[in-house]
Amino acid sequence: MTDTQPTGSTPTPSTPQAATATATVVPALQLKNVSKSFGSVLALRDISLHVDPGTVTCVLGDNGAGKSTLIKILSGVHQPSSGELLVKGQARTFASPREALGAGIATVYQDLATVPLMSVWRNFFLGNEPQRGIRGLKFLDSAKARETCRAELLAMGIDLRDLEQPIGTLSGGERQAVAIARAVYFGAEVLILDEPTSALGVKQSGVVLKYIRQAKERGIGVVFITHNPHHAHMVGDRFYLLNRGALTNEFEKATVTREQLVKAMAGGAELEALAHELGADR
C-alpha cells in the first residue's frame, strides 16, 4: 500500500506534537518509538502512541499489519526491542502478563478469556475469588461473589437471570461482555480488546460496542484493536492505522468521517480499483 491520501476532503493526520498538545492529562499508557524485531524480521517500527483515560483508542490494521505484536507488547507478553513503554508517565518493563495486569493493564483475548463449562459467576471471579473465614481455613464467599457479579454485570447493562449457567451457553457477545466487566471490576485502568467483534454477527457486535462505551465512561482507557473501521468509528476517540509494522496515520474523532477512515484503512486508491474491477456501482 502506498501513501494513504483519501480523495475528497482530506483529513489532516495530526502529528504526534499536535496530539500531545491537546492532551493535558497524563496518558494511562504510552509507547515511545517502540520497535520490535524477531530475528531478522522487523515486526514493529518506531511506534509512538498514547492511550488517555476515559477514551477509546482504536488500532486499525489489516492482517499481518503487526496488531498481534502490538497487543503482546502492551500486555507484557513481549518486551520491546527498543523504545519505551510508559504507564501513567512512568517508564516500565513487564516481564509477564501478570505484571502488566498488576499495573492495571488487562487484556481480553478473543477466545481465551473464559472456561466454557464453568458457571458465569465462577468465571467472573476466576483467579481472584473472594474468600472468607479464618487463616488457614478459607472458603469461597460465594454469596458475595454472586451478588457482586450480578451487580457488575448490571452496571454494564447485561442482565443474566441465571448466574449458575455455564458460560459456554452464553452468546459470543455476552461472553465478551462478562470478560470486559470482569476486567473493569478488577481495577483495569487500561483495557486491551483483541478483535472483540471479529467473530460476531451485526447485533452481537453492537452489544460489545455498547460495553466498550460503558467501560470508557467509567474512566478506563480502552485499546480497541480491530480491522473493522465501521466498528472503530462508532466508538473510537482516536484512531491509529497500522500497516506493515508502522503507524501510517493518526486521526482524531472530530476530524475524520467514517468514509475517510474506511478509505484510509483499505487504501483509497486500491479500494476504488477493486470496486472498478468488480463492476460495483459505488
Partner: peptide, 10 residues
C-alpha cells in the same frame, strides 16, 4: 475446562 483461559486469568 480450559487451561489457557485459566492461565490468562492468573
Amino acid at each position: 475446562g480450559d487451561s489457557n483461559a485459566a492461565r490468562n486469568t492468573g
